[in-house]
Design a protein around this nucleic acid. Sequence first.
DNA 1: GCACAGCCTGACGTCGCGTCAGGGTCAAGC
DNA 2: GCTTGACCCTGACGCGACGTCAGGCTGTGC
Lengths: 251, 251
Amino acid sequence: MNVGEVAALAGVTVRTLHHYDRIGLLSPSGRTAAGYRRYSAADLDRLHQVLLYRELGFPLEEVATLLDDPSADPAAHLRRQHRLLRDRLERTQAMVAAVEKEMEAMAMGISLTPEERFELFGDWLPEEYEQEAEERWGDTEAWSQSQARTRAYTKEDWVRIKAEGEDVEARMAAALQAGVAPDSPQAMDLAEEARQQISRNFYDCPPEMHAGLGRMYVEDERFTAHYERRTPGLAGWVSTAVQANAARQGA
Amino acid sequence: MNVGEVAALAGVTVRTLHHYDRIGLLSPSGRTAAGYRRYSAADLDRLHQVLLYRELGFPLEEVATLLDDPSADPAAHLRRQHRLLRDRLERTQAMVAAVEKEMEAMAMGISLTPEERFELFGDWLPEEYEQEAEERWGDTEAWSQSQARTRAYTKEDWVRIKAEGEDVEARMAAALQAGVAPDSPQAMDLAEEARQQISRNFYDCPPEMHAGLGRMYVEDERFTAHYERRTPGLAGWVSTAVQANAARQGA
DNA sequence: GCACAGCCTGACGTCGCGTCAGGGTCAAGC
DNA sequence: GCTTGACCCTGACGCGACGTCAGGCTGTGC
């Protein structure tokens, strides 16, 4: 792909891509004879990561070191991005609540003190700090353990993990065909097994998050197709089971 | 207050305040004989607005015109901030969902297409655009009408509005003392009346938002005190009634 | 074969501050 | 009354992440 196409796809300007090339953050993997930049699928992948981290407030130099860190596999990036995004979500919710509070205070004729108003800004570590905390977290045992966990997978590990996943999926398909209701305890147990498998092998997946994934299984055709290829109706069955299981866990 | 104190309170640097002074965005209302900047409560108020709009991605110059616009009263700013924050909330939720989708895709061995990955960035109007849309919205009839609505209040209007609020509160207190259950239809009707009053006189307050306010009545001592001063137990009663009413409306 | 969109490389401009430098101010303690 | 150390002032330069020309080459549809 040429710069213009990439820029349009990613929602950035051509100048931005030039800039990323110049500073070595994202150099296209090829050039035409005339010197035109040519971006590969892998380049797009990297650009995606860059834009995510950039939106999360990281300076570009920092982004480069993050992405070039050989000890960070894709799963590690996803985990970090997920955590940072959830932090941001919390912060935004707090700000919405604060504004609603002010609205209500106005309607009731109460006036808030400056301290109350600045609460959000005061004890808020600006986004730069997030990465600092992130770096510190990065050195913690739990983190590096979980990181080491996925990184240390050998080819055989992957085969085993794949097989585990296959196994649960097959048992779900069998249950569906045997007429087991997706909100039955048996189905929920299978869903729970799948959840724990994800948590063990990939990333921490609390019930609430698993419920979100369950919804996606029927909303996103890619995932629907994955299940439907095995057995028609399986996507919906798994989706319901996963959500029922999450509800059972109190999510 | 001196610059240092203000900076500490607001979570910004002294240099930032100097900068805002230089560009005329926020000039302290006074100086000491020695030239020290002295910030009043009104200055703090303005700083608060500045920081909010800044965090929402507005360039400082834009912030200045927004805040100096004589046709925008405090309520108008709150409404705008509320809308922008809710947009941001939605966007962040979408990003969280996207990352979770990628995590799951990885676990399932599916790989997403670049188009899917860039969806978020593609059709997303970067925050600058928000203000543009905002400005366009700003010229729409509905908006200027509602803006004119609050701005046009005379002193008598305020007295009337205050009286309206007093009236509903008094009837709520009476209901409480008469032993009316806060989740009874009668209580919910009073809550609904209060909600419509807010929507009429101040800002659009859908049931869902009203429910959030209801929670605040018991969580925030300022609002709790407002109700408890009138009648002990009223804060909790109103809170329950408001939330029950919101639930009744399907929120 | 030519118009016109798209690509290239400098190079300078901008925004929102960070970071000195060089010097006055103020409250506390001796 | 004098020092000391924290706090304040005004320039002035620097920086990150691009925006915005300028001047010139490339690729394609008619």
